[in-house]
Amino acid sequence: MEQPIQIEDEVQFLDPERLKISRNQFAELEAELPDGSVHAPVEPVRTFPLTQPDQYISLLDAHKNELGLVEDINQLKEADRTILADELEKCYFMPKITKIHDLAGRFGVTEWDAETEVGSVSFDLRSRNDITSLDRGRILIRDIDGNRYEIVNYHKLDPKSITLLETQI
């Protein structure tokens, strides 16, 4: 009788030792795969952008076909890791909010003035549904233009921010 498939075998990660990532003259990501083939432009995609941002990175070619999966970017050689991490930072811009200065709402729209790790920002939401509460006080926000913001744990914000935020969640 045949054995059932081992599902672990179905995923092959790219060998971090034999993967080369560089940037070409057109500022595109270029990847040399373990089989020796070279691809550019390569687009890295986080498969778990919210929960595992540095693991299971899918590399796509120009036609959005998957070239392979990187199990953990920290296994890569330092030079490769820097380039990939830099590109991922570009592709996923989601500032972390550290303080809420003001939050005013009218007709269901809310206008936020907040401090993030990368500077102060103001943005608008069209409804409460644009705020997603996850486990352990984590909050994701998507504003009217499609920008995204994150609050790592809202219980750890200052009391004023918490009071303002709790009117919305």
Partner: peptide, 8 residues
């Protein structure tokens, strides 16, 4: 230029 609420 103000946002339009989702219900409207």
């Amino acid at each position: 230029g103000r946002p339009i609420p989702r219900w409207s």
